[in-house]
Amino acid sequence: MITEKVTITSSLSNIWACRQLLMQLWKRDFAARYKTGVLGIAWAVINPLLMLALYSFVFVSVFKMRWGSGPDVQGNFVILLFTGLMVHGFFAEFLSRAPLLISSNPSYVKKVVFPLELLPLMPLLGAIINLGIGVFLVSCLLFYVQGSVPLTIFLLPLILAPYIVLVVGMSYFLSATGVFVRDMTHVVGLVTTISMFASPVLFPLENVPENYRIFLYLNPLTTVVVQLREVTVLGIIPDLRVWAAYFFISMIVFCLGLSWFQATREGFADVL
């Protein structure tokens, strides 16, 4: 137990010491995603808008779904739907790349002395920027529909912090495991799809029978989706006890993921 603690501490210290290198990796990774496109970084805005338009058409115009009551239930549905899609988009974007982050960079593993702890963090900047763009679009929609934005939106960093920590911990686990189990990319694709339908991304949690809601809370997206909607749309301060429990679980997942990464890294070069 003591050795594991030292490993985690030394890894975090190494990441901090190499923060300038991490910034360069972030910039290069983000630029590589958009530099070959004609519209460039504009796709970071176009993609969520297209997805929002598609889901809004299917669920509002085709299935006639409503979310809550009031004179503008359609507008409320679109905004609440978008917040769920933001959370799932971050999850899917980050984890879908995780299994290939080590195996797609063999030169860093074999030929040079490189802090491998940085590789699972490469998608972080792009995912956070896309999440920030989503928050901005939600704010614009809120102002258009309601004429104001609730002050609780300033609690957004508090809500997202443990979620980001949890996803990074999962990324460490998946990036290390993906070196040895190449089928992990297919597993992650299936998991990210299931996670959308097994959480209140596309529907309100209240629509789920109370006896089954506990199973939805086993999904790491559920808590953050509910609390994100509370602070950005509904103007409600989330339950701090739920937030604290989520933060505690996130730290456990992060420590376990990083520990697994450090325990397996010696075998990366042999496999690659």
Results as ranks from 00 to 15, higher is better:
residue 70 G to Y: 05
residue 220 P to G: 04
residue 246 Y to N: 10
residue 116 L to T: 11
residue 225 V to H: 03
residue 130 N to C: 07
residue 270 D to V: 04
residue 22 L to W: 04
residue 26 W to N: 08
residue 219 N to P: 08
residue 133 I to T: 08
residue 263 A to W: 10
residue 238 P to C: 06
residue 152 T to W: 04
residue 89 G to L: 10
residue 219 N to F: 06
residue 265 R to C: 05
residue 184 M to Q: 09
residue 250 S to G: 15
residue 46 I to L: 13
residue 253 V to G: 02
residue 5 K to Q: 13
residue 94 F to N: 12
residue 156 L to S: 08
residue 60 V to S: 09
residue 2 I to W: 03
residue 142 L to N: 15
residue 269 A to W: 01
residue 180 F to V: 07
residue 157 P to A: 01
residue 97 R to H: 07
residue 131 L to E: 05
residue 140 C to T: 12
residue 189 G to A: 00
residue 135 V to A: 11
residue 157 P to W: 00
residue 24 Q to Y: 09
residue 153 I to Q: 08
residue 169 G to W: 05
residue 96 S to V: 03
residue 245 A to W: 14
residue 177 T to L: 15
residue 272 L to E: 12
residue 211 N to R: 14
residue 153 I to N: 00
residue 158 L to P: 02
residue 204 P to V: 05
residue 84 G to K: 12
residue 111 K to L: 14
residue 30 F to I: 14
residue 25 L to K: 09
residue 246 Y to A: 04
residue 259 S to H: 14
residue 238 P to R: 00
residue 109 V to E: 10
residue 142 L to Y: 01
residue 250 S to H: 04
residue 241 R to Y: 15
residue 67 W to Y: 07
residue 7 T to G: 11
residue 57 F to I: 12
residue 250 S to K: 05
residue 212 Y to H: 06
residue 113 V to N: 11
residue 44 A to W: 00
residue 95 L to H: 09
residue 3 T to F: 13
residue 121 L to V: 07
residue 206 E to Q: 13
residue 68 G to K: 01
residue 98 A to L: 05
residue 186 H to Y: 14
residue 43 W to G: 03
residue 230 E to K: 05
residue 192 T to N: 03
residue 33 R to M: 01
residue 120 P to G: 11
residue 153 I to V: 14
residue 97 R to N: 13
residue 96 S to Q: 09
residue 78 V to S: 09
residue 61 S to L: 12
residue 107 S to M: 12
residue 150 P to D: 05
residue 167 V to N: 12
